[in-house]
Amino acid sequence: MSRLTIFEDGRPGDPVLRTEEPAAIRDALAPIGVRFERWESPVSLSPDEAPEVILEAFRPHLDRLMGETGAGTADVIKLRPDTPNKDALRSKFLSEHTHSEDEVRFFVHGSGSFILHVDGRVYDAHCTQGDLISVPTGTRHWFDAGTEPFVTALRVFTDTTGWVAHYTGDDIADRFPAA
């Protein structure tokens, strides 16, 4: 189930807000420019489907989304417990970073948390199958799918070279427990 937990002052502890209601998640993230939606899709795929099959199945949704965002390309990322480089990938995503474009993800299967660091607050947006999240350009954040990840996500890029992180050097991600 999707969940948003907000912490004050960038420190773990008692949250300011915790909700599992999609509308409340959307409304809490909107003021910081984050787009959050639940997609009810007639597409039902096996987690074992090839990336090309997933892209084709979601093509109508992707075309609409890419038209709205001006994106130039999309791909599929799959992280599983048996992904050969999963520890290196997880480490890369766990450090706080920004991007020079919006980071747009749609969760086809599984789950993961986008943790956003904005204006002295930390927003832990745990996304699950059917969630769309778009993190605005320049927003400090990190991502965690856990030590035994199970996630398939569509990634939408404006820059056709794909995912490029600009690490902040802030150790805030180390102060929050990983999934």
Score class of each variant (00 low, 15 high):
R155T: 04
W142D: 01
P51W: 12
D27A: 14
L45R: 00
V156D: 02
L29E: 02
T128Q: 09
R64D: 11
T158C: 05
I32N: 02
R64M: 07
G70P: 06
A50C: 08
F93V: 01
P47Q: 00
L132V: 03
P84F: 05
R26Y: 02
F107V: 13
G67P: 15
P12I: 03
F58H: 09
I32V: 11
W142S: 02
T139Y: 04
H117T: 06
G10S: 07
V108D: 00
A24M: 11
M1H: 01
H61N: 12
L154P: 03
T161K: 11
P42M: 05
T139S: 13
R38L: 14
E20F: 07
S91C: 07
E37P: 03
R64T: 08
H117V: 14
T5D: 01
D144Y: 04
R140P: 00
C127D: 03
R155Q: 05
A57I: 03
A145K: 12
F58K: 04
R3A: 11
D131C: 14
R175N: 08
G33C: 09
R35P: 04
A57W: 01
H141G: 08
G70C: 11
P31W: 04
T69I: 09
R155Y: 02
T147E: 13
F176K: 05
T137K: 14
E96V: 10
V118L: 02
W163N: 12
P22V: 01
E96A: 14
G120H: 05
L65C: 03
P51V: 09
A30C: 03
G110E: 05
S113Q: 12
E101K: 09
T161W: 01
F93H: 06
F36I: 15
A125F: 02
R155I: 04
H126C: 12
A74G: 11
L94M: 14
P12T: 02
G162N: 07
D63Y: 00
E20W: 06
T161N: 14
D75L: 08
L89I: 13
